[in-house]
Design a protein around this nucleic acid. Sequence first.
DNA 1: AACTCTAAGTTCGATTTCGAAAGGTTAGCA
DNA 2: TGCTAACCTTTCGAAATCGAACTTAGAGTT
Lengths: 154, 154
Amino acid sequence: MAAYVAAGGEESVQRVITAIYGVTKKLDQWYGRQLADLGLTQGEWAVVAALAKAGETCLTPSQLADLTNVAPSSMTHRLDKMAERGLIRRSPDEANRTRTLISLTGDGWDLFSEAIRESNVVESDILRGLSGDERADLAGLLERVIEQLDRVEA
Amino acid sequence: MAAYVAAGGEESVQRVITAIYGVTKKLDQWYGRQLADLGLTQGEWAVVAALAKAGETCLTPSQLADLTNVAPSSMTHRLDKMAERGLIRRSPDEANRTRTLISLTGDGWDLFSEAIRESNVVESDILRGLSGDERADLAGLLERVIEQLDRVEA
DNA sequence: AACTCTAAGTTCGATTTCGAAAGGTTAGCA
DNA sequence: TGCTAACCTTTCGAAATCGAACTTAGAGTT
């Protein structure tokens, strides 16, 4: 730690970064446990949830890859398995034949409903310790960090 | 989104979770870019940094696995590669021969110094947009979330 | 001392992920 | 029309990760 500070690093930054990675790790564990019953991985749940949130509108593999933070090639593989299992369906986009449109099948919707209904994946437990204002503060601060990182990127 | 809310999920929770995963993703990209010059992966840097922060005291593979959030078996592989490259050294713990002690070699320390000196990995850029108070708030809120998650776990 | 139970590190096989390259499709423009 | 550039998805090979099983060492008990 002393080496960091001496080199110009700030302890407050370290503290935040450590905490962010800590929360992410815990969150991953929590999701993993909640989804194990349904035979879903986190990545697969992320796809189901993204499609469910999108509602009627279909999403492309690229969009899903962006939304769930993986490379497009990884999404191809993931969708292969989910299609094989009958959770999603690939259909060609007639308007732009470069694209493929992904939608939930009946089974996919059933699985989403079941996960929600059994409240396996209602995330309220996670932030139970924070008040409404504090949640807003937290989200706001994190969003500002994201903005800053976007700016550094450019 | 409507499906979530109807099922008892709260939008504020979704917002926080989305933001946390967003920051983590950006952070990973940022680290990846900074470290590419040095030929280090994030995981390897995490090991170097942990050992550097520990200073004189050696760490065991298990401790490093905990600190860097990977399985012990993954750490074995990582350390193999780093030892092969001459960055770290394994030495038996005479006090407890179950353990192995990991320490940075001269080359490992040089690499750490170089990374810091070239300010490749001084994280201050990341939180430039936040004041000191805000950083403390952010860290505090995240740490409370971690506590809550620990409690749910038990 | 003998036995058991726990802990640490590693090995092994399976899975997941990534990046680079390929193939097909669209859009812009001379 | 023909050419080029960009985009989307997929294929492929390489690398990282995980969980489970295994080996060895230490601690505690009788």
